[in-house]
């Protein structure tokens, strides 16, 4: 009856311990562990990146979201081998990114959190959403955050903060490109930009 993650169920031959090579926040990192170790544990315990939180271990709540080649994915049940040869970005590594920075400022201004445990995962999902240049109306943003749970009920503030960040980024782009610059909601020709 228990709801146990697949990777830790007893099996005949566990994956051997080996050197797992990752690219995390633009740096090459090596961890000695079994290849099927969930990425979240490596990030938190071996690399000291504790901003991605453990919420369920079942890829159901989004507290552990990271970017894998720019896509937001839960890291709690992602085997380390699946992250090898990909770029992993965490909430810590995204700090210099203008999109993440705009989001964090907006969250702070709106006080868009209560306990804050789900927040870094939400920020990572929202960052991927805004970077992709997707629509930022409340319905689209809510869809982008559908895999993130919040239990304190900060939903309204979070949606408002994401909208604020999108607006601030759009204003910054307008200032950069002149009044006729492309809207931030259009797909961006230069692809994702961030802490690479």
């Amino acid at each position: 009856m228990t709801s146990t993650p697949e990777w830790c169920r007893p099996r005949a031959v566990p994956e051997p311990v080996r050197e797992v090579r990752l690219r995390v926040n633009g740096e090459s990192r090596t961890v000695v562990c079994r290849g099927d170790t969930p990425l979240l544990y490596l990030l938190r315990n071996d690399l000291g990146l504790r901003g991605s939180r453990f919420g369920c271990g079942l890829a159901q709540c989004g507290a552990c979201m990271v970017l894998l080649d720019g896509r937001a994915v839960p890291s709690c049940d992602l085997p380390a081998w699946a992250a090898e040869d990909h770029e992993v970005e965490t909430v810590e590594g995204l700090a210099p990114d203008p999109v993440m920075s705009a989001l964090q400022q907006a969250f702070l201004r709106r006080q868009a959190a209560q306990c804050g445990f789900c927040t870094s995962g939400i920020l990572v999902s929202a960052c991927a959403h805004l970077r992709a240049g997707a629509a930022t109306d409340p319905v689209s943003t809510a869809e982008a955050l559908e895999r993130n749970l919040c239990r304190c009920g900060s939903h309204g503030r979070v949606l408002a903060a994401v909208a604020d960040a999108a607006e601030a980024l759009q204003a910054a782009r307008r200032a950069e490109c002149g009044a006729d610059g492309p809207p931030v909601t259009a797909p961006r020709a230069d692809g994702p930009r961030g802490a690479r």
Partner: peptide, 27 residues
Amino acid sequence: LPRTDLPAKLTGAPAFVSDLALPGQLF
């Protein structure tokens, strides 16, 4: 006034009991 504990929680800094890491810590 803005909450004093939120900046750490918004930047992914260690903020929670589960983020504590003492030397020699076991699981």
